[in-house]
Design a protein around this nucleic acid. Structure first.
Length: 572
RNA sequence: UGGGACGUCGCCAAGUCGGUAAGGCACGGGAUUUUGAUUCCCGCAUUCGAAGGUUCGAGUCCUUCCGUCCCAGCCA
């Protein structure tokens, strides 16, 4: 119902056209992370796009780990990635690894050599760089470029057998050293790395490069639409070159292996879209890693981190993230989205789903002097103002309450609607109270406000219709539960922390107030809730019971985000 | 004097075969409200990076120019 019509975008249009023309009977996509780090909100766009397109058109989407560089990858990440993808709400058709295809990829390399399209090159990395030329000058052919097929086959076999040292030789494609596109200047296909692989162990000591392995992986899996980000646009000619040289859907020498893996190959098309960027955040793996390693945040799942784990712990919902990404659209335009858009979707989602509770984050004592010491009353309050089916809860009310310190001011600014000396305010769900007295400590700080409750305005009575400017929330002091409450704010104080033109780095822009830990007073109904349960603490914001630290012995709530606050905005 | 891409409101983003600028967020104003929340109204680009040109008519076609991003890993 809240779903607006799905906005069309150029990739959906391509899929629509391909289906309409009969080019494909069904589509297949894949989400191909390298297991060398945690997923972040930027990845969520690719996940939603790939899984989303497949779901929308009854196709399939694989989760494929692009694990072609064993030096960087770790199985710890593959589990985390699987969990994050599922949390976001998606399920893969097949779970694969590029390394599942090492045999196929190797056979393809053999064909390239036999066809005179690849050669073993003895140049060192430095020499390759010299021969490559520059952006404006063409490169030169490697002196090993014209080796015969038999020699190449022999050398490549010996590379595979481990006869040569790391870095001493590569298998290179033979394309065009003069191409304006540097990716076409005889790119490396295989390098020697005598490193144990997280999935294949010590079976291989030569590993295929991304460009080569990725296209073969796409093709053997029968991926129809290979969606990736803009920086791979330059790689597409190489992607297509590989497909031209290696029609894996028609290579008899691949058949047994394809059958063994249950693969049905096809010719994929690579399509690039712009990545998701958000203001007030850094997204690079390097910087996120540094934040963790240097103790600037509490870990990969710190609620201030843009990792999916962090965002989850913060209390954002998968639905909100999906809506956010859907609304952002898919284009080839580089853009930076406002973080507030995401926050908006979170508020939208939580407003509808989160039950209301009362909690006081910065307590000030309020005593209702015309109530007896022993007064003990149980009120019934709605769990949700717009959804009766959410039921009601019991709320304890007594003579001494906690109210929010900022809801009382001795000298209020113009437009202040809350409690002031001699003024009236409504206690949510109770009635109208009038401030008769203010008690201060030796420093002159207010420690208690004393009020009288107007009995004719009690909730449910006709007198309750009497208008007062403000309504404030409260918690019965003697029934309150103290709980650790973490008030989060943005991690960075500037919109573009990556901008270092002024000589400052992202570290200089860390928001010193990105988290404030306080002891809040909660209403009793908040006792013993399950971790990850979300509530709106009325007038304060949305809060979630911490996924990790919250339990029966220690109650811990994280502020997901505040409510919109037009008063705070006006007061500025 | 390399190659590739992108430039429509503050941020995103629709704009079929050229026919006279959707929507969301933000922002401003108002109504409702026992959350200064939610909800609901109203307003918000004579203009599409710029300049020429073609045309009865151009964001959409042509030309030139300007700006931004990506590429010289045996990383992905």
């Amino acid at each position: 119902m809240s779903e607006t019509p799905v906005p069309n975008h150029f990739i959906r249009q391509i899929v629509l056209d391909d289906l309409a023309s009969g080019k494909h009977a069904a589509i297949a996509t894949r989400f191909p992370p390298e297991p060398n780090g945690y997923l972040h909100i930027g990845h969520a766009k690719s996940i939603c796009l790939n899984f989303g397109m497949a779901a929308e058109f009854d196709g399939r989407c694989n989760l494929r780990f692009d694990d072609t560089n064993p030096a960087k990858e770790d199985p710890e990440y593959v589990e985390a990635i699987k969990e994050d993808v599922q949390w976001l709400g998606f399920q893969w058709a097949e779970l694969r690894h590029a390394s599942d295809y090492f045999e196929l990829i190797h056979r393809c390399a053999l064909k390239l050599i036999r066809d005179g399209r690849a050669f073993v090159c003895d140049l060192s990395a430095d020499e390759v760089r010299e021969y490559r030329g520059t952006l404006t000058q063409p490169g030169r052919n490697s002196p090993y470029r014209e080796r015969g097929v038999e020699e190449n086959l022999d050398l490549f076999a010996r590379m595979k057998a481990g006869e040569f040292a790391d870095g001493s030789r590569t298998l290179r494609a033979k394309i065009d050293m003069a191409s304006g596109n540097i990716n076409l200047r005889d790119p490396a296909l295989y390098r020697i790395r005598k490193v144990e692989h997280q999935n294949t162990g010590n079976a291989w000591c030569i590993y295929p490069m991304y460009d080569y392995a990725h296209v073969v992986s796409d093709a053997v899996e029968g991926i129809t639409h290979s969606l990736c980000t803009l920086e791979f646009e330059d790689h597409r000619p190489l992607y297509d070159w590989c497909l031209d040289q290696l029609p894996v859907w028609n290579m008899p020498e691949l058949k047994d292996e394809l059958d063994r893996l249950g693969l049905k190959p096809g010719r994929p098309r690579q399509i690039e879209f712009s990545r998701l960027n958000l203001d007030y955040l850094v997204m690079s793996k390097r910087k996120l890693l540094a934040l963790v390693n240097d103790g600037l945040v509490a870990g990969w799942d710190d609620p201030r981190m843009p990792t999916l784990r962090g965002i989850r712990r913060r209390g954002f919902t998968p639905e909100a993230i999906r809506n956010f990404i859907r609304n952002a659209g898919v284009t080839k335009q580089e853009s930076v989205l406002e973080f507030s858009l995401l926050e908006n979707e979170v508020r939208n989602d939580l407003d509808a789903r989160a039950e209301r509770r009362m909690a006081v984050v910065d307590p000030l004592k309020l005593v209702i002097t015309n109530l007896p010491e022993s007064h003990d009353e149980t009120l019934t309050m709605a769990n949700h103002p717009k959804d009766e089916s959410r039921g009601t809860r019991a709320v304890c009310f007594s003579r001494e309450l906690w109210i929010e310190r900022e809801d009382f001011m001795e000298v209020p600014p113009k437009g202040y609607h809350r409690l002031v000396p001699g003024g009236e305010v409504r206690l949510r769900g109770v009635g109208i109270v009038k401030c008769e007295d203010v008690i201060k400590d030796a420093n002159g700080d207010v420690v208690e406000v004393r009020c009288t409750l107007d009995d004719s305005t009690r909730h449910g009575l006709p007198g309750a219709d009497r208008k007062v400017k403000g309504t404030i929330h409260w918690v019965s002091a003697k029934h309150a539960i103290a709980a650790e409450t973490r008030l989060y704010d943005r991690l960075f104080s500037v919109a573009d922390p990556d901008d270092d033109k002024d000589g400052k780095t992202y570290r200089d822009h860390l928001n010193p107030a990105s988290v404030r830990i306080v002891t809040a007073q909660l209403e009793a109904a908040l006792a013993n809730v399950a971790p990850e349960t979300r509530f709106q603490f009325e007038r304060l914001g949305y809060f979630v019971a911490d996924r990790k630290d919250h339990g029966a012995d220690r109650q811990v709530f994280n502020r997901v985000c505040t409510l919109r606050d037009s008063w705070a905005k006006a007061a500025k």
